[in-house]
Write a protein that binds this DNA or RNA. Structure first.
Length: 428
RNA sequence: GCAGAGAUGGCGGAGCGGCUGAACGCGCACGAUUCGAAAUCGUGUUAUGCAGGAAUGUAUACAAGGGUUCAAAUCCCUUUCUCUGCGCCA
């Protein structure tokens, strides 16, 4: 949600931003918002005046009652009652106009960064930088499910019976590797000065509707029957919800947090060959990073954050690249965003393993996340980024570290978390 | 989960239909005193929206939401949270 004062003072810049995102159908929203806003202010003035007169008259009633002037008191009461009808109408219309305005404001996209490439969809995202040479082994790299099965690392058939499609049992060394990656990522982020947090894995509906739109909620969130609780789709939900309607002290900022959680997603509409296996699933685990900072610091945090993910992957010897999202591919709440993609030797291309976003004050404004300091109370900036989401990163891991004999190499940094193990070998 | 008590400013705590945006105390800021400090004294000290160049005015907010009333921190209902006791449980 953008600042309405920007819309009032410079509507053309808001329209220009909408054009850059190729959302021309949203251009009329700007004038709609402006007219709703002026109507809202007019209604507020009228309501305030009516309430002021009610307050004055009510005080008179009190005074008259004390003086036992019942008759006169009744006359004044009647006057208040006469105004009450108009006030009720004004209040009803105010509520209506306000909710319409909010709905319109929610659909107006956040102002994008001047560095965001202009493009209409994900095909126009821009590769910024590569890290480590992508490699292509002599032998053919199998689909990750086949690798996992050879290593006795997965049981999908049983999971289908117990839980349905989109679930899995990870077993043995693979399960241990999965936990090792998370533990390593956790320590890596702690080493960068982040505070480790284990958040609630379920949140209430008011938090859910704060952090996402109704459509997103419908497509992603699992609801607990008979309770006002939803399973989180990412720890960002409970991590950001933690600060909803909160005014932080300037001295607390920046808040640099790294959270672990399982993530539950319905993934409505997922299908296709690349969806087989553990690429897109209903349950996975993720280490996330969240930064809440002052506006002037968010750009530099954004740079640091995606670089941390790159550094983590490079330390595990997995080639990655940074792909900057173009204007048309940027979600409405985002100022700037990039994906960290890992190399897939099997597909001979990069695929997404993490996503870093600077939402500036758009999310904070929507959720009421502010901070108080020398310059008064202002909205904070919020950023989030994936540290690592193991089932998906496991695909990159297996494909890149598979050797001709079917064994999988374990990079140095993970060995302490694997009891010193240097490789995982096929069973039988 | 059951029963009882409760939720008021940065903190403690009064108020329990109108004179309360909130007594009193602590804290904090500024000033006086002092060589300086402590102590003491004085003054000030909630937030947000709207209007205004500003001074300021006005509205709203006493956990949240709804209701009663001319008028609600105060009465009623719902929800959330906290404390105490009992129950249950890694």
């Amino acid at each position: 949600m953008i600042d309405i004062t920007l819309l009032r003072s410079d509507p053309e810049s808001v329209r220009e931003n909408i054009r850059k995102k190729f959302q021309h159908q949203k251009l009329p929203l700007v004038d709609e918002a402006l007219s709703l806003d002026s109507r809202r202010r007019a209604l507020q003035q009228e309501g305030d005046t009516l309430r002021a007169s009610r307050n004055t008259l009510s005080k008179q009633v009190g005074a008259l009652m004390r003086e036992k002037k019942r008759e006169e008191a009744e006359t004044v009461k009647a006057q208040v009652t006469a105004n009450a009808e108009r006030l009720a109408a004004v209040e009803a219309e105010t509520a209506e106009v306000e909710s319409k305005l909010k709905a319109v404001m929610m659909r107006i996209p956040n102002i994008i960064s001047k560095d965001t490439p202009i493009g209409k969809d994900d095909s126009e995202n821009v590769e910024r930088q590569r890290f480590l040479e992508p490699k292509t082994p002599e032998f053919e790299v199998p689909y990750h499910l086949d690798i996992l099965e050879k290593l006795a690392g997965i049981d999908i058939d049983s999971a289908r019976r117990t839980s349905g499609q989109g679930f899995y049992y990870l077993t043995g060394d693979i399960a241990r590797l999965h936990s090792a990656v998370l533990a390593y990522a956790r320590d890596f982020m702690i080493g960068k000065g982040f505070t480790y947090v284990i958040p609630p894995f379920m949140i209430r509906s008011d938090v859910v509707s704060g952090v996402m739109s109704f459509e997103e909620m419908d497509g992603m969130m699992y609801k607990i029957e008979g309770e006002d609780l939803y399973l989180i789709g990412t720890s960002e939900h409970s991590m950001i919800g933690r600060f909803m309607n909160t005014t932080l002290d300037e001295k607390q900022l920046p808040l640099t947090l790294t959270s672990y959680s399982p993530c539950f997603r319905k993934e409505k509409g997922a299908h296709g060959i690349e969806e087989r296996g553990i690429y897109r699933i209903h349950q996975f685990e993720k280490q996330e990073m969240i930064v809440i900072c002052k506006p002037e610091e968010s750009e530099s945090w954004y740079e640091k954050m995606w670089q941390y993910t790159v550094e983590l992957f490079v330390s595990m010897e997995i080639p990655v690249r940074q792909l900057e999202c173009c204007s048309g591919d940027l979600a409405d709440l985002k100022y700037r965003s990039c994906d960290v993609e890992a190399w897939s030797p099997r597909q001979q291309k990069y695929f997404e393993v993490g996503s870093c976003s600077n939402l500036t004050d758009a999310q904070a404004r929507r959720l009421g996340i502010r901070y108080k300091g020398e310059g008064g109370t202002k909205y904070a900036h919020t950023l989030n980024n994936t540290v690592v989401a193991p089932p998906r990163m496991l695909i990159a891991f297996l494909e890149n570290h598979l050797r001709a004999d079917g064994s999988v190499y374990i990079p140095e940094v993970l060995r302490p978390y694997m009891g010193g193990q240097k490789e995982i070998v096929p069973k039988k």
